[in-house]
Amino acid sequence: MSAQHFDNPEITFQPDHSGGTGKIWKIFWVLSLLTIIELALGFFLYAKHGDLGYVTVLSTKCAIAILTLAKAYYIVSVFMHLGDEVRNLIMTIVVPLVLFVWFIIAFLADGNSWKNLRNTNAGSKPNQTEQIQKETNEKAEH
């Protein structure tokens, strides 16, 4: 079995594939571990439903989202081999994805603004949002 060889003018430097499968299995265990931690946090939110403050729930959900981003990084970098490519290719894929930062913040803020408008009759009934939030929470506790 010889290593594969590209007779392709687009590939100036042949990539190095002499490594074993050790790294693949290591990343498999990393991904499994991250998923198990996510599930543990999810069960924590479920088991303590109603007892947790707004900040605790939000920060737990943020922690789960960060773990998800870590999983995404390992899949793209190792399984999809983007980490082994030349910097030019990495940047042409990663830089456009920065748009998501604006995309997520702008649209979730827009959704939240819609909720405030709905609850306050388009701003004519201020301070209603918190009250409705409270009622919803109280109902959920029963």
Binding site: E10, I11, Q14
Partner: peptide, 21 residues
């Protein structure tokens, strides 16, 4: 297998700047 020499001028022509097909 060739290690990529540092200071390779990717955009000077004659090769793909992404080094993939």
């Amino acid at each position: 297998t060739t290690a990529i020499p540092s200071g390779t001028k990717w955009w000077s022509g004659g090769k793909s700047p992404f080094n993939v097909s």
